[in-house]
């Protein structure tokens, strides 16, 4: 191996090359529909990055990232619902339920600036609060996973049941709203959104890399390895876990907002239990602890999903179930971990 350094370099860089090609070349060759799909999948890469941060590095398996994903989506969705209305008008669906005045919590979302911050700060605060309540009592491992899943179900029930507040099951549509005079659903805006997604994926990756590279990242890994030990060394691990969970929440929010505008709707389905576990499998397949693997995993699996669902829809659950089994038994470090594995000489 060592006599072919270029081969090693090739192994190292190929995954990056794949992503760069995906981001730069595909927009030129793909038809708008496919490009839109790619944009959606890339935006899912951002929530995957957050999961990698909390699970791949810190060892906290959250099955509830859909909460934060949906909160980001709803924040933007509400703004877009309000954005193209004449003063005094209400979003259409309120009429169905006989709601005459805008509920109070909708009011601030008329402001683009507020919405811009709400997209990531609201999920971060919710994640931080939930995380703090759980971590401060040293609830960890599978208990944490179960509680995040239960929280997810609770949020789902809430959004699903509140027609008068948030249009319940139907969710909020965004593609008929207008930004700068163009329909959100138009090809032009969608292409712009694709580029925005690319930029934000890079930014999110950079943020995660900055967090994990230095001693802060070492603390995260140490929490995964032996949290009590770290506490006896003088680190307040609760604050680290809360912080990193909040960051993952913020990333999920941004991801959800991007996904919403590219798929045209935000609905309680964003908080469906299976969807949030699926997010974990993107990271697992890509390779946890490798940030780029999270993005790659999200794109690849969703791409595979859309292909399979077009051709043989009934086999997708089998394939997905098989993937879960595969990554925990045979590929614990995911595709990239496997790809980048150092060959051990006998």
């Amino acid at each position: 191996m060592n006599s072919f350094p270029w081969l090693k370099a090739w192994r190292r860089w190929l995954p990056w090359l794949v992503l760069v090609v995906a981001a730069l070349v595909l927009p030129i060759v793909l038809p708008p529909f496919r490009l839109n799909l790619l944009g959606r999948f890339l935006s899912l890469g951002i929530v995957a990055l957050g999961i990698d941060l909390i699970w791949g590095y810190t060892g906290l398996l959250s099955l509830g990232q859909g909460i934060f994903f949906a909160l980001g989506g709803y924040a933007l969705g509400m703004h877009l619902q309000l954005g193209s209305l004449a003063p005094g008008q209400l979003p259409e669906f309120f009429g169905l339920y006989g709601v005459k005045s805008l509920p109070g919590f909708w009011q601030p979302f008329t402001s683009p600036l507020f919405t811009f911050f709400a997209i990531w700060i609201v999920p971060a605060l919710v994640a931080g609060l939930l995380g703090y309540l759980v971590f401060r009592n040293r609830i960890k491992g599978v208990y944490f996973s179960i509680l995040t899943q239960a929280a997810l179900l609770v949020f789902f029930n809430f959004f699903n049941g509140q027609q008068k507040l948030i249009n319940g099951t139907n969710g909020l549509k965004t593609d008929t709203a207008k930004v700068f005079g163009d329909l959100v659903g138009s090809d032009l805006v969608q292409k712009e959104l694709f580029w925005l997604t690319v930029v934000l994926v890079v930014a999110a990756w950079w943020l995660c890399r900055w967090l994990t590279k230095g001693r802060f990242g070492d603390v995260l890994v140490a929490i995964r390895d032996d949290e009590p030990r770290l506490r006896f060394t003088g680190y307040n691990t609760t604050s680290y876990k809360t912080l990193v969970f909040a960051v993952a929440g913020a990333l999920a929010g941004i991801s959800g907002a991007l996904y919403t505008v590219q798929s045209g709707i935000v609905s309680p389905q964003f908080m469906a239990v299976p969807f949030s576990i699926e997010m974990v499998i993107w990271v697992a397949v890509g390779g946890r602890g490798t940030l780029i693997g999270a993005v790659l995993g999200a794109v690849l699996i969703n791409f595979a999903k859309s292909l399979v669902s077009e051709q043989l829809p009934e086999t997708w659950l089998f394939i997905q179930g098989g993937l879960f089994l595969l990554v925990v038994t045979a590929l614990p470090d995911g595709l990239l971990g496997w790809w980048w594995r150092r060959e051990v000489k006998p």
């Binding site: 398996l61 599978v142 996973s145 299976p274 997905q320 179930g321 993937l323 879960f324 925990v328 614990p332």
Partner: peptide, 12 residues
């Protein structure tokens, strides 16, 4: 945690 994910796969 791995068991949790694997059994989820089985459930699907």
């Amino acid at each position: 945690l791995e068991t949790l994910l694997a059994t989820w796969g089985v459930s699907l």
